[in-house]
Design a protein around this nucleic acid. Structure first.
Lengths: 206, 206
DNA sequence: CGGGATACGATGCGATCGCATTGTAAACGA
DNA sequence: TCGTTTACAATGCGATCGCATCGTATCCCG
């Protein structure tokens, strides 16, 4: 039987410390000692809750992915049911683009893990697993818009959804690199939406 | 006065060892000792040619970028002057997508450095510096196609060039993650080109 | 009121890291 | 020919790493 501490809560606290470190100093700055210091506990405590560093990193990534998804869903519903699918796409892009400090940290963390995923199938699995749901939802929305006549001719909803997220992802990385400004990235997204939807862009700016 | 060895050639040999290590085991596997072993020389020799590890990594990245550019230019000219701009874009995409073992290694190296660039402005500068030339060239080609009436209406050549490379980049990462196959990625690129050019896709397959 | 399970904290071990230092053999200019 | 410069090789240093071990305090159950 456990003592009085909440095991899962403690793990989440440690994961938070990991994510703060990754966002601020990169994955290579994550060591058991640093994490312990960031979380304000001893190194032994960290070891107590995670059998290895890899397990800790994987758990932190899962935590981050879950939080990010919740945040996006919350933002989309808080956007008050956009009148058109075009605006839904735009709101989603604005939420994913690393514009706010929060989404910037999110994206930095995701990228840091992405590299590791190239050589560690377990991490790759975690990253890839979120894809189909996202792709499916926006594909359905685009199909709905297509039936409503809001989409230009010659569009394959599945392929086009991939193109949409390609633009958002690439512009995100360009922002993080300092290659492009947030305004320029949004302008590119709007240009892309211009060529996808028949309905004009709204007057709302960032 | 130097001895009989070619200083620059030696630096390039070491850079090759670095790039092999990065492609095979990631940037975190690059240490002075590993590089020395990979290059078949002593650690002291490596230190002799590079004052610090960071300088060595930066030089290796420059070497890789130069090689990659040369390889793409060679492929484009070896493609025998594609008759249409659409085919030029397709050839470029096929060359950049991590399909062959060579381009796969190239892309892995690029990604590894990209992450580091998020926190090291010097690396970011090296990566960003290659952008304008690439963007400019393909923008010009797209403008030429536009004047020739090979492009659909409503295209902004500058923005559209960004979208094109967005698609190629994102599909590249999807391939590396194992999220998509090379064939699926090429199909998405072809779909995108379908919606950009008025001329039909050629019969050439990968 | 023991006893086992849980929750740590402290410490040590072996490996690896970047880098500095030192030694040495070879080539070239004066 | 002699001294300077170049091209290494070898080694040591201090720091950091993940992880294992050990001691101990605390709590729940019987």
């Amino acid at each position: 039987m456990p003592k009085k501490v909440d095991h899962d809560a403690r793990r989440r606290e440690i994961a938070d410390a990991v994510l703060r470190l990754v966002a601020a100093e990169g994955l290579e700055a994550v060591s058991l000692r640093h994490v312990a210091a960031e979380a304000g506990i001893s190194m032994g405590a960290v070891q107590h809750y995670f059998r290895s560093k890899d397990e800790m990193l994987a758990f932190a990534l899962e935590t981050q992915a879950r939080r990010r998804e919740e945040r996006i869903v919350r933002q989309l519903s808080a956007a008050g049911r956009p009148p058109t699918v075009r605006e839904l796409f735009r709101v989603a892009a604005l939420e994913v683009l690393p514009i706010s400090e929060e989404s910037r940290a999110d994206y930095t963390v995701g990228l840091a893990y992405f590299i590791r995923a190239l050589r560690e199938p377990r991490i790759a699995e975690l990253i890839v697993s979120g894809g189909p749901a996202l792709h499916g939802y926006f594909g359905e929305q685009l199909a709905k818009a297509q039936r409503a006549g809001e989409v230009v001719d010659g569009v394959d909803v599945s392929q086009e959804t991939l193109v949409f997220w390609s633009v958002v992802d690439s512009q995100s990385t360009a922002i993080l690199l300092g290659e492009r400004t947030a305004e320029a990235a949004v302008a590119t997204v709007d240009y892309y939406l211009d060529r996808l939807f028949t309905v004009a862009r709204s007057q709302v700016t960032i």
